[in-house]
Computed example of a mutant assay.
Amino acid sequence: MRSSVSVRSRSSMAAGGLAVLLLATGAVGCGGNDDGAKSSSKGDSVKAPAMEPAAAVAAAAKNADDIKSFRYRMSGSIPGEGRLKGEAAMSVEPPAMSMKMTAAGKGTDGPVEIRLVDKAMYIGGNPEMAKEMEGKSWLKLDMSAAGADGGLNADQLGAGEAGKNPASDSTFLSGAKDIKEIGTETVDGVKTTHYQGTVTLDDLRAKIKAEDKNLRERHEQSLEQYETMGVDEMTMDMWIDGESHTKQFRMRGEAKKGPLDMLITFIDYNQPVKVTAPPAKDTTDLSEMMKGVEQG
């Protein structure tokens, strides 16, 4: 019984970390190709025609809808959760992801890894978790069975965000009334133009009223996340390359539980993303484990 309760505590810790990471990725944007072709963010970009700041941001935001897969690294802080850093690869269609995250002060001795493969989520890859599960280092959650009998459900684990295109939220910067060009900067060898603006949640609510139903619903979910964090105004930065693709994105805000300050740098996009499930011998089914805890 002690072992089961301890494992539940460990799994809840990992789930919390996942939710934090997915919350962060769901609030950032990147660019895609207008024709959906494979693309990479490596190398110098072709110089784009000069545009007014608002037009440049709007063009990059429009391209975001074409993103189907991407790899990126992230670092920063989230109110109430503290500092974190990580790397991820994600495919929007079909849904798949692989994330490695380290959260400061969360009691782990290394990064937590999350994989989403064929409607199953795996959390683990951490030696500390293996100590609590008889040497097995991965927890598996069958997404179709999540939430049964009062156990952890997919939304609590943040899986609802996994199939979402996080690039769509980059359109929020286009809702700023004070977009300005900061200057030209090179990010990972890519020449970019840096833009900045400030938006409030009220500004964003007014903006999304004119959007189509599906896009409006996705953006409303993002606004609810910001409200939960206690952030009502954000300074947003976007580094756009010469092909109107976002290379880097930053968002900053203040809340009672601490600062929001996340920096996302995209490595590539619209490249194949292959995620494999951990070996079955190293995996414990989380849904079955939770049932045992509740019955105990």
Rank of each mutant, 00 (worst) to 15 (best):
S3T: 14
V5Q: 14
S6M: 12
S6E: 12
V7K: 15
S9P: 00
R10Y: 11
S12F: 10
S12C: 13
M13G: 13
G16L: 12
A19P: 08
A19K: 09
V20C: 11
L21R: 02
L23N: 14
G26F: 04
G36Q: 13
A37S: 02
K38S: 09
S41Q: 08
V46H: 00
A48S: 05
A48E: 00
A58N: 04
A61F: 14
S69F: 04
M74N: 11
S77K: 12
G82F: 09
G86F: 08
A88V: 14
V92P: 03
P95H: 01
A96P: 10
A103G: 08
A103H: 09
A104R: 14
G105R: 05
G107V: 01
G110I: 10
P111H: 08
P111V: 13
K119P: 01
M121V: 06
Y122E: 04
G125N: 07
G125M: 12
P127H: 09
E128F: 03
K136H: 13
L139D: 07
K140H: 10
L152K: 03
N153S: 10
N153K: 07
N153I: 05
Q156D: 04
G158A: 13
A159S: 08
E161H: 09
S168H: 04
D169N: 15
T171N: 03
L173I: 14
G175N: 04
A176F: 05
E185R: 09
G189H: 13
G189D: 10
Y195R: 08
Y195H: 11
T198E: 05
T200Q: 03
L204Y: 06
A206T: 15
I208A: 04
N214T: 14
L215E: 04
H219A: 12
S222M: 11
L223K: 05
T228D: 06
T228C: 07
M229E: 01
E233A: 10
M234N: 06
W239Y: 08
E243Q: 12
T246D: 00
T246H: 00
K247E: 11
Q248P: 04
Q248L: 05
A255S: 00
K256T: 05
L260H: 07
D261Q: 09
T276G: 01
T276S: 01
T276F: 02
A280E: 09
T283H: 07
T283A: 06
E294I: 11
E294K: 12
E294Y: 15
